[in-house]
Amino acid sequence: MPLIRRDTESPRPCDTCDTLMTNANSPTWNEKQRRFLTAYCERPAVAPAARLAGVHRATVYRWLTEPGFAEAMRLAAEVFFQAHRLKVLAQEAERQRWRDERESARRPMRRAVLERARAARGLA
């Protein structure tokens, strides 16, 4: 699930000078970096994601010196947390539905118990 769009075209020339802009395009990631970012989207922890990608975690920390890669990691973590938040909200809604269903089933029992208690008070 690649999350980051990569432009493969060459940088465009600057409008006001003859030199090429250095940050015109995002960098292209190698295969190991792509595998790491994909694994990091699934579990935002460096060591397990690096293990899944087949790279050493020290390599990942070296890649983090590149601002583009650090931003890609931040975006990958954001994607994970957004997906995780949706999952948690869905689970909470399911729990609330179950609680409401259980409560509606328990109401008749409560009524019967209260009626017996009132009847016992009336006899005493």
Rank of each mutant, 00 (worst) to 15 (best):
V46E: 02
T22M: 00
L114K: 08
A90V: 14
R107G: 07
N25A: 05
E115W: 02
M73S: 01
K32I: 07
Y61Q: 03
F81R: 14
H84G: 02
A112I: 10
A45N: 13
A90S: 13
G122S: 02
A49W: 07
N23I: 07
A58F: 09
E103A: 03
N25K: 06
G122Q: 08
L89A: 10
Q91I: 06
L123S: 04
R95L: 10
A83C: 08
R121F: 00
F80Y: 13
V60R: 03
A77Q: 05
T22I: 02
P108Q: 02
Q33T: 04
R85L: 09
A53S: 07
E101A: 11
E66C: 04
T38F: 12
E66V: 06
A50R: 03
T22F: 00
S26A: 06
R97H: 09
N30W: 04
E66R: 04
Y40G: 09
F80C: 03
S10L: 15
R107I: 15
P48A: 07
A53E: 01
T28S: 08
R43H: 06
R97M: 14
L75D: 01
L114M: 14
Q82N: 09
W63C: 04
W29F: 15
P67G: 00
L86S: 11
T19W: 08
R62F: 09
I4H: 12
R99H: 15
L89N: 10
K87C: 09
T19D: 12
E115M: 02
L123R: 09
T65L: 02
R57S: 13
W29N: 10
W63P: 12
D18H: 00
M21L: 15
V79A: 13
I4A: 03
A77L: 00
A49G: 11
A39S: 11
P48Q: 00
T59E: 02
A117I: 12
S10I: 09
P2Y: 05
R102V: 11
F69Y: 06
P13K: 00
P108K: 06
R106D: 10
M21H: 06
E94N: 08
P48T: 02
R107P: 10
A72D: 11
T65R: 05
P2S: 11
A124H: 09
E31Q: 03
A112L: 11
R57N: 04
R57C: 12
A105K: 15
V88Q: 14
E103I: 08
E9Q: 05
R95I: 12
A47Y: 09
L123Y: 05
R111Q: 05
S26R: 03
C17G: 10
A93Y: 01
R110L: 05
K32L: 08
E92R: 15
R12H: 00
D7A: 05
